[in-house]
Computed example of a mutant assay.
Amino acid sequence: MIDLLAAEWTKLWSLRSTRWLLGLGTLAIVTFAVQSSLEAYHGWPGFPAMEKARFSPLTEAFSGLSATMLMIGAGSLGALTIVGEYATGLIRTTLSAVPARHRVVAAKLAVVSGVMLATGALVSAATFGVSQAILSGRGVAVSLGDPGVLRVLAANALLAPVSGLVGMGVGALLRHTAAAVVAVCAVLVIVPTFFRPTVHQWLNDLYALVPFYVWRTCLGLPQLRDDPALPTVAGSWAVFALWPLAAAVLTLLVVRRRDV
Rank of each mutant, 00 (worst) to 15 (best):
C185T: 09
T68L: 12
C218Y: 00
T94S: 14
R103V: 00
A125W: 09
V162F: 02
A74Q: 09
S66Q: 12
P222E: 06
A125K: 02
S76F: 07
W13R: 15
R175V: 08
R196G: 00
I190D: 01
A40P: 04
A107P: 11
V104L: 06
T93A: 14
L70Q: 15
L70C: 05
L80R: 05
M50P: 00
V152A: 09
A61R: 08
W215G: 06
A28M: 09
E8R: 09
W9S: 15
L80M: 13
A208L: 07
L95I: 08
V162M: 13
T31P: 02
V189I: 15
A141K: 04
G220I: 10
A6P: 01
F194A: 13
T198D: 02
S163F: 05
D3Y: 07
M50K: 05
T68Y: 03
T81V: 14
T217L: 09
W237E: 11
T88W: 07
E60P: 01
R256K: 12
A79Y: 05
W215N: 03
A141Y: 07
L15T: 06
L252Y: 08
V166D: 01
G78V: 06
L38W: 14
D146T: 08
L95C: 03
V214E: 06
F212D: 02
R101T: 11
S113P: 05
R92H: 13
T119G: 00
V104A: 07
